[in-house]
C-alpha cells in the first residue's frame, strides 16, 4: 500500500456535490493522495467539473483547471509546455476526464498527445455514459445497457470501445486499468505512472448509482464484481507491447455483476449469453498475452 500523505488534512474534499455512492470521488481522493500537492488537474466538462464546487469554491487541494469538452488533452499539453518553459518540470499534469471526453469528444486530441507522447498523466474515470447530462450513451457504454438514448427495445447494440488497445497502438509508455474496489492496486498504479515520463493513461471504472440504476451502497461491490466477473479486467500495458494482468480474478459469471444494476434489467437471455461469451473470449486473449514477449495483436475482440 502506498502510504497516505494526508493531503486533505485542511478540510478539502468535503462538501462536494457528487451523488451518494459516487465512484469518481473515491478514485480522485486516492489519486490526489498519491500524487501529492505538486499536481495540476486539467478537467473537461463532466461530472467531475460540476461537482468540484460552485465558483469561486473548489474541493480540490491542487490547481483545478476547467477546459472545454473536446480540448482537455490540448489544454493539458499547453499547461505542460508552460511548466517546462518556466522550469517547473517536477509538477505532474493530470487530466481528469470522464468517458465522454475520453472515448468520444476528446478522442482526437487524446490521440494527438499520445502520438506526440506528451508528458501527461491522463486518467479517465469511466462511468460508461454521459451521466452528468442525464445518462446518454457514449462509446464507453457496454453492450446491452439501458441509457436514455438507448431505451428499452433499442438497448445499446454495439460493444464498448476498447480504448486501452487504441492507445496501446500509439505505443505510449504506460497504460493501466484500475478499480476503486482494489484500492491498493489503484494507488500502486498511480504511483508507478507518476514516475514515468511521457503519456500515461489510466482507465478506472467508476460506478455511478443514478446512471447504473444501482443501490449507492453497492458501488464498491460492483467495482469489485466487474473485476471478478472479468467485465473489467485489471491489467497494464507497457510501451504498447507488454501486457501484464495485475489480478487473477475468480471468473465469476457475469450475471452476478449484471443483476445488481437496473441498466441491465432489459437484457434477454441471449444477450446475457453474448456478454458472457465475449467476456470469456476477451479474458482468454488477455491471458494468452499476459507477460508474453510478442507484440500485441490489434484486434482483441471478435464481433
Amino acid at each position: 500500500m502506498i502510504e497516505e500523505k494526508g493531503i486533505f488534512s485542511g478540510g478539502e474534499f468535503c462538501g462536494h456535490a457528487s451523488c451518494p455512492g459516487c465512484g469518481e470521488k473515491i478514485i480522485l481522493r486516492h489519486i490526489l493522495d498519491v500524487l501529492g500537492r505538486k499536481t495540476i488537474i486539467v478537467c473537461p466538462a463532466g461530472c467531475a467539473a460540476v461537482t468540484d464546487g460552485i465558483f469561486p469554491h473548489s474541493i480540490s487541494p491542487v490547481p483545478f483547471m476547467h477546459t472545454p469538452f473536446d480540448a482537455v488533452a490540448s489544454c493539458a499539453a499547453g499547461v505542460r509546455a508552460g511548466l517546462e518553459m518556466s522550469g517547473r518540470s517536477e509538477v505532474t499534469v493530470m487530466v481528469w476526464a470522464g468517458d465522454g471526453a475520453t472515448f468520444d469528444i476528446g478522442m482526437g486530441a487524446l490521440s494527438a498527445i499520445a502520438e506526440r507522447n506528451e508528458n501527461i498523466l491522463y486518467i479517465c474515470y469511466d462511468n460508461e455514459a454521459y451521466m452528468n447530462t442525464g445518462i446518454q450513451r457514449s462509446s464507453a457504454t457496454p453492450f446491452g445497457s439501458w441509457t436514455t438514448t438507448t431505451p428499452r427495445g433499442r438497448l445499446k447494440s454495439e460493444p464498448k470501445k476498447d480504448i486501452n488497445f487504441i492507445l496501446a497502438s500509439h505505443k505510449i509508455p504506460y497504460i493501466a486499468t484500475a478499480s476503486p474496489a482494489f484500492i491498493d492496486d489503484l494507488r500502486e498504479k498511480v504511483n508507478k505512472a507518476k514516475e514515468i515520463t511521457g503519456l500515461r493513461f489510466l482507465h478506472v471504472l467508476s460506478p455511478c448509482p443514478p446512471g447504473w440504476k444501482s443501490d449507492p451502497k453497492d458501488s464498491i461491490t460492483l467495482a469489485r464484481l466487474a473485476v471478478e466477473c472479468n467485465v473489467f479486467p485489471l491489467f497494464e500495458i507497457e510501451n504498447g507491447e507488454r501486457i501484464r494482468l495485475s489480478y487473477r480474478s475468480q471468473s465469476l459469471p457475469v450475471t452476478e455483476y449484471l443483476d445488481m444494476q437496473g441498466r441491465f434489467r432489459y437484457l434477454s437471455e441471449e444477450e446475457t449469453e453474448t456478454i458472457q461469451s465475449r467476456t470469456d473470449e476477451y479474458y482468454k486473449t488477455l491471458n494468452s498475452l499476459h507477460e508474453s514477449e510478442q507484440p500485441l495483436r490489434m484486434t482483441m475482440r471478435k464481433e
Binding site: G11, G53, I54, P56, H57, I59, H66
Partner: peptide, 16 residues
Amino acid sequence: MPDIAVSKARMDWNKT
C-alpha cells in the same frame, strides 16, 4: 470578482 475564474475557498461550508 477576480480577473479570471479562480477558486477562492473550499466547499466545506456545504454540509452535505
